[in-house]
Design a protein around this nucleic acid. Structure first.
Lengths: 245, 245
DNA sequence: ATGCCCAATCTTGTATGCAAGATGGTCATT
DNA sequence: AATGACCATCTTGCATACAAGATTGGGCAT
């Protein structure tokens, strides 16, 4: 993933893997574009021209176009008919809408997981949780978030609902993108940790309804303070940052 | 060369619309394939060969391939890498998974709709509901289902959450497909009507939590009785369970 | 000078060609 | 006769050619 070398081309001259990539070019292209969008290298509103990306990524237009459809399904780009594809904007109201849906899905996942979770899985999750506490104390945000992702992923897996998993996964890239925004998720670390702890308790007690509600709330709490849903388009002049808790 | 149906071609010789279709070929192809899958003309498990469909629909492989991706995102077909595209199976456990997710989305929609619905919209919905009662008495199932769709669509629209709408819409074709199965939705007409009535009352009272729960249950009740796993973790309302058949 | 129209160019949408992988049947070997 | 390898063919994945709509900049008329 750190191959941000200047050459974006997928294959170099004489690449022995050249033939081996067949059948996955569009997936690779989609993955690469997804990275670029999430990292902000391709900023919101940017027009993506097919030939330009073809040259950068080193494939023809066909797999690029297929990748576009994948990314459009993930909400990362918008396809304008007979016009360019543009990187989707991500404004605050959109994020709120996204979080509401994602929260509902996580709630459902928690509820279903409660019905199926095994003791071993509860124990495993307890271990992950204590790791998170550790990392929080060390201030290692990167690894903390990694474990965080792992836990959420685990709940979804335990829920064992393929439709849920697929829907959740299709929304995830946008959520990650929102999380990467500077003013989101500022420093509610401590609060989030407490919420995780409560959710774990609910899971261990197999209290589906409670976990469902906690998961939803946990997620909505990740929104910037009190984004009630009334404040539409981002207030431009508000430069206040929330004090760290 | 006689196809199963010669009228499948999108354009006939000398079609004046021939040029006007540009930019929508893959959409039309997707729509046509979607229909064929929902109607059962393309049965589950059937292998879809590109060239064959090209001839039937009258376009080249490119739009067909793009249509395949659209349908795959809707869960109607499955793309086997380097192998054919096949019409997705739709077995009972899948349907249950689907309904759980869809029910959660409808629940969220109801909750959000309660926060935004206007008196005029409540009135309109009351009108639709009474139409349904009428059609139920007349036994006009077709129109009944049409109004039914309209009401659900209206709730989603009132919720005014684009992410929710898009996610819901992407799941909808599969739900419609499940509804078309013979042994689903047998004759719980009357019960469904009663549930709709309760939901309407909750909406009129702006009781989001209640509507959310009712919507979820309403949807899950559409599953054939005894569709598999243990029933939901809903002990508080267990007296409500309908032991129908 | 300003505004409208047209054409050159760019960009996307569609069709088709070509190569690699999958499929299926036949033949040789045990 | 059964089994496994091989070859012909089919099908998909990718690349590229071609056409139509969109964009834009300049020229012309007012």
């Amino acid at each position: 993933m750190s191959e941000t070398d200047s050459s974006l081309a997928l294959d170099l001259p004489g690449d022995p893997e050249a033939g081996r990539r067949r059948g996955r070019l569009h997936q690779e292209a989609a993955a690469r574009l997804r990275e670029k969008i999430l990292s902000g290298e391709l900023p919101p509103g940017m027009r993506l021209r097919e030939v330009q990306l073809c040259e950068q990524i080193g494939v023809s237009r066909t797999p690029i176009r297929e990748a576009f459809r994948t990314l459009a399904a993930e909400g990362l780009v918008e396809l304008l008919p007979n016009r360019s594809v543009v990187v989707a904007e991500l404004r605050m109201p959109d994020i709120e809408h996204l979080y509401r849906v994602f929260g509902a899905l996580e709630g459902l996942a928690g509820e279903l997981a409660c019905q199926r979770v095994t003791e071993a899985q509860v124990a495993e999750m307890g271990r992950l949780l204590s790791q998170m506490v550790d990392l929080h104390q060390k201030g290692d945000r990167g690894r903390y978030m990694e474990i965080n992702r792992q836990i959420h992923r685990m709940v979804i897996d335990i829920a064992a609902n393929p439709v849920l998993t697929a829907t959740w996964a299709s929304l995830l890239p946008r959520v990650e993108r929102a999380r990467a925004l500077p003013n989101l998720d500022p420093n509610r670390w401590t609060a989030a940790l407490l919420e995780h702890s409560k959710m774990f308790t609910a899971l261990a007690a197999r209290d589906g309804k409670l976990l469902s509600e906690l998961a939803r709330q946990h997620f909505l709490n990740g929104l910037p303070y009190n984004s009630g849903h009334a404040d539409e388009s981002a207030p431009p002049t508000r430069s206040r940052r929330r004090p760290k808790d």
